[in-house]
Design a protein around this nucleic acid. Sequence first.
DNA 1: GTTGCAAGTCACCAGTCGGTGACAATATCT
DNA 2: AGATATTGTCACCGACTGGTGACTTGCAAC
Lengths: 210, 210
Amino acid sequence: MTRDRFATRAAIIESAASLVAAGGIPHLGVNSLADAAGCDKVLIYRYFGGLDGVLAALGAERVLWPAVEVPPENDDSGVSLAEAVQSLLLEEWAALSAGALMLQSAVSELESSRSSLSPATAQQRDEQHARMIATLKTRHRVPPYVDLPALVELLSSALTLFALRASQTHGDRREGSPAQHLDPATPAGWRRIEKMLGAITRALLHAEHQ
Amino acid sequence: MTRDRFATRAAIIESAASLVAAGGIPHLGVNSLADAAGCDKVLIYRYFGGLDGVLAALGAERVLWPAVEVPPENDDSGVSLAEAVQSLLLEEWAALSAGALMLQSAVSELESSRSSLSPATAQQRDEQHARMIATLKTRHRVPPYVDLPALVELLSSALTLFALRASQTHGDRREGSPAQHLDPATPAGWRRIEKMLGAITRALLHAEHQ
DNA sequence: GTTGCAAGTCACCAGTCGGTGACAATATCT
DNA sequence: AGATATTGTCACCGACTGGTGACTTGCAAC
């Protein structure tokens, strides 16, 4: 072992990230973390003061909420505000679904055993949405009667829950679903959700509407 | 102790319900459950085969998802389809927020440590939504171009996530939120969400639209 | 009453958890 | 070189976990 404090510190955080991504925060323990990082568990207490310190450091230097970027420079090239909002939300959903650590940190907000990751996640999400709305407002005219932050928050929450549920149903599709039933984890079901998303944004954000 | 198998069985399930409601499924253990139920833990294995059996029994005989009822008999008395959908969703949200066991079982769907409560929750939710849509369709004319199940699923998911997040933020409001920020756990923020909900249902479900 | 079976209790197992003190090895500075 | 402070290792602690076998208590049928 190279006696390098920064290196082992980084190894601990790295291992914590992958362990959390794999099994969730409740399954993260001092022993397993030290084992995965290839160091002794006493170093976790020395460097971070305990597991919670590791999670705090993890939240401080990792991306816990997808940072979607508004596509550059085609300000008014035919793309409407409704389409822009929809595509941003779908991008956020895709990035969230693909990032196991993001998914787990999103779940950590909801668990009764709170961790230091939860506030970091909430803050990153808020900042990201604020940035998204700010750039949208500079590039499109937002009708004054529509509450864009509320709309984004509502739709983003719905998509987030879909992503969380989908991440837990791996092939164990439940049968007996009536034809009427809609399952976002199914391609057909997801297409309906996408269509509904488009319908909502179009109905609310098109200027000719009320 | 009254040597009554059914009584102790019921006591175990009852204690399991309150323990889960209080601390979540991950905090439910054989020892604590037996202690709370006032019986020996070996009975848990004898009667249910283990903790998972208790959770399965719990899911089978408890309400894990609010069963909101369509208000009776005022079919066309001025209440529009949009208003009906909105009020049903708000009722569902209120019932979900008030039921600790419901909240915890909803979280259990998202945890990596799956339990036998998750499928029961999902099934109850599906059935409830299907019933809600069915009665809505009999009492109101639903425009053919609108996918009512998808709309309900999307809005219900958003409200569910709001309820889950709110149940975990007990007074530890985070500061430094910009004026632009929207927090559903705040009265003002929640009012904006409600308004947005109304705007969406109205924009999509009013016949004169599109 | 006496017998038999189910209900309930107790003691214990092996394993894991988080956490700590004493110690060895290495790097750094004089 | 030697002295010192830091980095890493090891062994151990008490507490708790899920789980099981051997036991005692009580009800109910005979």
